[in-house]
């Protein structure tokens, strides 16, 4: 399962859902796998407003991934002005596509290409562990916890 999916998941227990501690779920004993996918820069830009940045930072720390900046990047930090030779500067603004920055590429890799193949997702409120097997997370609860 993709790291981005964790942005939309909480503990499945009704009593936990109302608490702040049930989000994000904490990965444990996670085996990560990189599954490459096409880079779509506009997509990454438009996904940013949906992301709970502090939660994503926390997940990265827990997975031992490189630390993210303190705050979500501004859209301007995702694109660099194209490098244009000096003698063509006059028309540089016309039609030149902005280039994705390293930051944008790193976010693509983190959100869409980094997946949890096996492991557990732990609720910060009740401590319940949800298993991830073959990339599919199991959120079914034993009947006494429903």
């Amino acid at each position: 399962m993709k790291i981005l999916t964790l942005n939309f998941l909480t503990c499945a227990r009704k009593a936990c859902k109302a608490t702040n501690a049930a989000f994000p779920l904490h990965p444990r004993d996670a085996e990560l796998e990189i599954v490459e996918t096409d880079l779509n820069p506009l997509f990454i830009r438009n996904i940013l407003p949906r992301i709970e940045w502090d939660a994503l930072r926390e997940i990265c720390v827990e997975l031992g991934l490189p630390t993210l900046p303190d705050a979500a990047p501004e859209p301007a930090a995702l694109f660099a002005e194209p490098i244009v030779p000096a003698d063509t500067m006059q028309d540089a603004d016309e039609g030149a596509e902005k280039q994705p920055t390293q930051l944008l590429q790193d976010l693509h890799r983190l959100l869409l290409e980094t997946t949890i193949a096996t492991g557990k997702l732990v609720c910060g409120n009740c401590g319940h562990e949800y298993a991830v097997k073959e990339g599919i997370a199991n959120f079914l609860l034993p009947s006494h916890l429903v």
Binding site: T5, L9, K14, I136, A137
Partner: peptide
Amino acid sequence: GKFLDIVNADLTTPIRSGS
């Protein structure tokens, strides 16, 4: 569009509120 995942769950129980 971009496909995220299928999760094994009872209806919407693990989905974040309002999302």
